[in-house]
Computed example of a mutant assay.
Amino acid sequence: MELAGPTLTLRYATPADAAALFALASDAQVTRFFSWGPYTKVEQPLAYIERLAGQRERGEQLDLLIVHRDDGPIGVTGLAELSRRDRRAVVGTWLGRRWWGSGANDESKALIGRLAFDHLGLDRVGAYADVDNGRSQAALERTGFVREGVLRGWHRHGDSVRDVALFSLLRDDFARSRLAAVPTQMRGEPPQSFVVLPFSP
């Protein structure tokens, strides 16, 4: 499965992408608010990649590599915390520091939104951002996500427990947003473990 936009493609990562992911996520600024990282050896992203197929099949995690048409892999986006009954999931995205503020986040959110609402049948996509991560919060609001409040003690990072701001994007929000205007081409089929309701736009 691949989703292609004007400058980016979302696709499954392969072991050949491990070196690129290591280069991107060995930057401590990139992983500052994550529960993992920074990477210190290439075996870490390789182990991550090797887990992805099983996670997809079990409906646990649907991570996709963000690939720039000229620069190759630049980050990762994906869906987790799937609730089939409630037709919702949570999106997470990270980009190498070079692509912060480049518009890559907006386009990747447009692609993952198209996947979530049009191809998986979701009604809600949530997102979290650390309360101290103003850049991430602003990026979510810029793409149309609505801030709903703060979840206290939600995210464990090492020995610390962090509060996170909660955001959401509903199907109608996406349809009205500028993300819906981004041209998107879908190739292949999404994993059936994540398809909650067949949807024809």
Rank of each mutant, 00 (worst) to 15 (best):
E2W: 05
L3T: 02
L3E: 05
P6T: 10
P6A: 08
T7A: 14
L8K: 06
Y12L: 14
P15Q: 09
A20F: 09
A20W: 08
A23L: 03
S26W: 00
S26H: 06
D27R: 01
A28V: 07
Q29S: 07
Q29R: 10
F34C: 05
W36I: 08
G37V: 02
G37W: 03
K41R: 14
V42N: 01
L46G: 04
L46Q: 10
A47Q: 15
I49D: 05
E50D: 14
R56V: 04
D63L: 08
L65A: 02
L65W: 08
V67C: 08
R69D: 11
R69F: 01
I74N: 01
G75V: 00
T77Q: 02
G78V: 02
A80N: 14
L82R: 11
R85L: 09
R88E: 08
A89G: 05
V90Y: 08
G92W: 05
L95W: 00
G96D: 05
R97M: 01
R98L: 00
W100Q: 08
W100K: 10
G101T: 04
S102A: 06
S102C: 02
A104T: 07
A104W: 04
N105I: 00
N105G: 03
D106I: 01
A110P: 10
A110H: 07
L111R: 03
L111H: 06
I112M: 11
G113R: 05
G113S: 12
R114A: 11
A116N: 10
A116R: 12
F117A: 04
D118G: 11
H119W: 13
R124V: 15
R124C: 12
V131I: 12
D132E: 14
A138W: 06
A138Y: 02
A139Y: 01
R142F: 11
R152H: 13
G153Q: 10
W154F: 15
H155D: 07
H155C: 05
H157Y: 02
D159N: 15
R162F: 10
D163S: 11
V164G: 11
V164W: 09
A165W: 03
L169M: 15
L169C: 14
L169S: 10
L170C: 10
D173V: 04
D173S: 08
D173I: 03
F174W: 15
R176C: 13
S177E: 08
S177T: 07
L179I: 01
A181C: 12
V182I: 10
Q185K: 13
R187K: 14
E189G: 10
Q192E: 13
Q192T: 12
F194Q: 06
F194A: 04
V196T: 09
F199E: 15
